[in-house]
Nucleic acid binder design. Structure first.
Lengths: 204, 204, 204, 204
DNA sequence: GATGAATGAGCTTTCATTCAT
DNA sequence: GATGAATGAAAGCTCATTCAT
């Protein structure tokens, strides 16, 4: 279907090779030679396609993330009611983060350096996520499960809330001795808070 | 209580600083300056206490491991019958490995270099583990839950079996493209095999 | 005459700079900065041309060795009869070793680490050495100086014998307190043994 | 016979251990731990007996040198006439230098750093050397082999001449590409010059 | 006198990044 | 577009040397 320019095609190849290496050696241990070697390219050539190693990582993680999000949305829709759908979606979304970081063995240190750029790029995906939640909520309203005037605002707020909770444990981890963000805490909080929010929305 | 020589005290300090750094940056990303800086030492000084970076890591992991094992044994004893105790202990034990490697973000590459030395040092702990299983099994015999003549042999065999299963997925990971050992497989196998073994022990 | 690629040309430059430094400071005291500085390169650049310092040394020694061997063969041919030629060649060959190690001040310790790799690379030269001895012997047969059916086998055996004798004193040196291989012993033995061998060959 | 203070005794022990190590590993590769380990001392303790590693080396070389000189003088006296004695003595003396540097694998670089201090310490030995030559010459005069008014001056001049020639090739080596002092040249020159000098002394 | 402890300087090696061609 | 070639920065490690005890 999609016609990719040659440049896009090679970028994709690089991304795939990188994904493989990141999963195998971790972000920091993967060398540009590891990546370029797989696709028979010189390591200097990577710089024609990407600004630097970090950008390759971000791209890979974003593409993977988008695939995952699409998949997750399909799964979420199978839950029985709006609340379950929303809770499931928000929780799994955070859990995904944890897995990605573990998979690529990114140190929180590096993470913090990367995150700003990540969210910059993530913006587009984020909008689609809010759109998805908006739809769910709207259909919940239609089915009479909940009542609320501004669905879009709620959708955006929920996403922001869960991202904020996630951020929170990441920052905590940076301050505390522990070093490892306790994403489980975010996930529990999300469950609790969404539960309370929906209690209110149903009451009416 | 425990009187540590000054050298021992500083080794402990180094170990704690290292543990913190390994958890935060991962083994490979942690520099000796990171570690020594925390306790106000010059990086060269670490070599007075440890032969090299790897040795620091092994020490830290072993000490942590021993603490964990002690704790795990207490937990295992709370399970209702011998079989549950044994299965729980063996499964959690392997799960711990997975967590440790994830926590410190050790690349499989490095892992393979370190493992031989690790098991050399682990020998002592291993004996205490076998001793623990032996006790559990003996008390199971006493309570009439199971029947078997040589409890000690069974204990050693069970430990060796679960370690072998763990090794197996590690070796597989090295051969396969994936790179990541699938410890879940080992854990499932342990559950299955111990189940079958105890079926036999109960039959009598 | 010979057209060298740019890479080959620079490798040669490095080799020459290295030879100069090794002779001046000795292998272990020569730093990569010493070598790279001479030809106006950054020390990291050496790694583009050679895997490591040891490889530079091996290359340099091999190239020098080959030159020496060629020269030695011309000299040996000037001796009056086969026996003299063979004895001269084998003795000088061992003496060269001693001189090279002295010249570059290689510690026996380092020597032992390097030797296996050296002989791996030396294989090619060795064959030409055997070929040379084979020729000498054949011409000795033609002139009626000696009698033997398999000249090639004798050639190979003589080279191996003298190398074995050299190895021997190197191993001895490692065991004994002295540390320094007594190559003179090998040289004396070679003289003695070749003398006896040729006595037999002439008798017929 | 000689009663050594405890300090002197330990200095001697250190010297012997050092000599062993220098011969085995060379000056630069020998660590203070190598030396102190042999006599069961802490490496820091060496600094109570010697100012630094270089001083240990100088001491060792001087002591060895003195032994050698004594021995050499006895040997020289066995030569048939003054000229032979003088030539032999001066030549062997320089050859000894070459051997010592080879034995301990001292780089000319290091040598130049050490030499000034060496000659400072050597002063005493030097006087005895001049005294020895003086005696030889005097006995030559007595036997009517040669004629000269100031024997002591000649003795000193001869020593200085041969040392100067030696210095010369060392400095040459530093300037030239070669790196290795060609002591053979000095030795040839000594032979030539002493020959001419004695020609003159005999003429009269 | 002896040494445990600490360190600065220097070494080899790796790697992301740059740039002329 | 691609890459050969180069490099700065930083890592792990070694060792002579210092110093308080």
């Amino acid at each position: 279907m999609e016609k990719l320019s040659k440049k896009e095609r090679i970028k994709k190849e690089i991304g795939e090779a990188a994904l493989f290496c990141f999963a195998k050696y971790g972000l920091e241990k993967t060398t540009l030679e590891d990546i370029s070697g797989i696709i028979g390219l010189n390591k200097a050539s990577l710089y024609y396609y990407y600004k630097n190693k970090e950008d390759i990582f971000l791209d890979v993680v974003l593409v993977e993330g988008e695939k995952y999000i699409t998949n997750l949305q399909a799964k979420a829709l199978q839950k029985k009611d709006v609340e379950s759908q929303v809770v499931y979606y928000l929780k799994e979304r955070v859990a995904y983060y944890k897995d990605v970081l573990n998979l690529h063995r990114v140190s929180p240190e590096t993470l913090n350096r990367i995150l700003p750029r990540f969210f910059e790029l993530y913006e587009r995906v984020l909008k689609s996520e809010i759109g998805f939640l908006d739809q769910i909520i709207k259909s919940g309203i239609k089915k009479g499960e909940i009542k609320i005037s501004s669905s879009a605002n709620l959708a955006a707020a929920l996403i922001r809330m869960s991202d904020a909770l996630k951020h929170n444990v990441e920052k905590q981890a940076n301050i505390n001795k522990s070093g490892k963000p306790d994403y489980e805490e975010s996930i529990r909080d999300i469950g609790l808070l969404v539960g309370l929010i929906f209690k209110g929305l149903k009451k009416n």
